[in-house]
């Protein structure tokens, strides 16, 4: 057997393994504790957030530090659509995504007037504005927030176990859908154009790909899924509150660290990053400040040493990504700026 055949076999094995994990996970509520299901649901939702940040940073060349805006919008929309409009849960969750998508349009119009790092901080300003505005919407609990009404909680399931089982499935479903849909997006004309852009901006323009449109599509795409995740997070937390629903730390800082540690520019990276992050978080739960400092230092180190993160290290051994989307982010960081 040749070397390359061995490798191909190994890749097939890894892919089947991943599929098997997903199948086993689907039966999770049959054997998992309530607390574990809750943790898993959180992990799944974090994966969605990390995937979306990664879609923007790793492929569309948009680094945001304000994605908590859309998570919070999703949460507040879910409250409005259930508690105020009385819609059923599935419709309300989809509606949360839709509201985030719709609000993303004017936001895009403003923040896309800036580029690169300016755009990044621009999204942060937008998120800050959304947080402040959320505390001023009448009937949504002001700055202290509000608990989801009883009928919404009952609609999730008759008892605690059913509720968390449903949340678990919804979250798992959201990861799978977010992954498949994003993989399709990246294989479409939009994705191909973006990858061509990373290799050579002029060439991408020459083959007729509208890069601005592609990047806007990615931004709206991310807003949709962040909104969906935000809606589910509101159900998981059973309440909305400006500071918590629009949490910079939980939905942007951690997510960025997770995505970067795992590896920007690959979906595997987002998944690995979230797992590593949650594992470390539980290990360091008594030293949260120290842990955050460690994460900060780690992400600085990664940027200087291996900008493609853990998955970048693994890929030095592995011939290709398990989840085939594209060639990964080619980090150019760490290159000396000084005289050669």
């Amino acid at each position: 057997m040749t070397f390359s055949k061995t490798r191909r076999l190994a890749m097939t094995g890894l892919r089947l393994g991943l599929l098997a994990v997903v199948v086993v996970l689907a039966f999770g509520p049959g054997f998992l504790e309530v607390g574990t299901m809750r943790l898993c649901a959180q992990v799944f939702l974090l994966m969605v957030l990390a995937m979306m940040w990664n879609l923007l940073a790793g492929y569309a060349d948009i680094v945001t530090v304000g994605q908590h805006a859309f998570v919070g919008i999703g949460a507040y929309a879910l409250y409005g659509l259930t508690a105020k409009a009385g819609l059923s849960l599935p419709v309300a969750i989809l509606g949360a995504g839709a509201v985030a998508l719709v609000l993303a349009v004017p936001i895009t119009a403003i923040v896309f007037r800036m580029r690169a790092a300016y755009l990044a901080i621009g999204t942060w300003v937008v998120a800050e504005v959304c947080t402040l505005l959320a505390s001023k919407i009448p009937g949504y609990g002001g700055a202290t927030g509000i608990t989801l009404p009883g009928q919404v909680i009952r609609a999730l399931g008759g008892n605690v176990r059913d509720r968390f089982a449903n949340l678990y499935w919804i979250s798992l479903g959201l990861v799978v859908v977010a992954y498949l849909a994003t993989a399709l997006l990246l294989r479409s004309r939009v994705g191909v154009g973006l990858m061509a852009m990373r290799d050579n901006e002029e060439a991408a323009g020459a083959i007729g790909v509208n890069l601005v449109a592609s990047r806007i599509i990615c931004f709206l795409w991310a807003a949709l899924f962040l909104g969906l995740a935000g809606g589910v997070l509101a159900l998981l937390n059973l309440r909305i509150q400006p500071a918590a629903s629009f949490s910079l730390i939980d939905y942007t800082v951690y997510v960025i660290f997770a995505a970067v540690i795992g590896g920007v520019g690959s979906i595997e990276g987002a998944i690995i990053g979230v797992l590593v992050y949650v594992g470390l978080r539980n290990a360091f739960s008594d030293y949260s400040n120290l842990y955050l400092m460690f994460l900060g230092a780690l992400s600085i180190l990664i940027m200087l040493v291996e900008p493609r993160g853990i998955w970048g290290l693994i890929r030095r051994v592995l011939p290709e990504n398990i989840i085939l989307v594209s060639h990964p982010y080619r980090g150019r960081a760490g290159r000396e700026q000084g005289e050669s």
Binding site: V253, I256, M293, M303, L304, G331
Partner: peptide
């Protein structure tokens, strides 16, 4: 900063963001 100043924005944002958190 000398190591990250250049064309790519991701390292700039991540490194300064990391400093901020630290």
């Amino acid at each position: 900063f000398q190591r990250i100043v250049g064309k790519d924005i991701l390292p700039v944002i991540l490194v300064t963001f990391g400093l901020s958190i630290i």
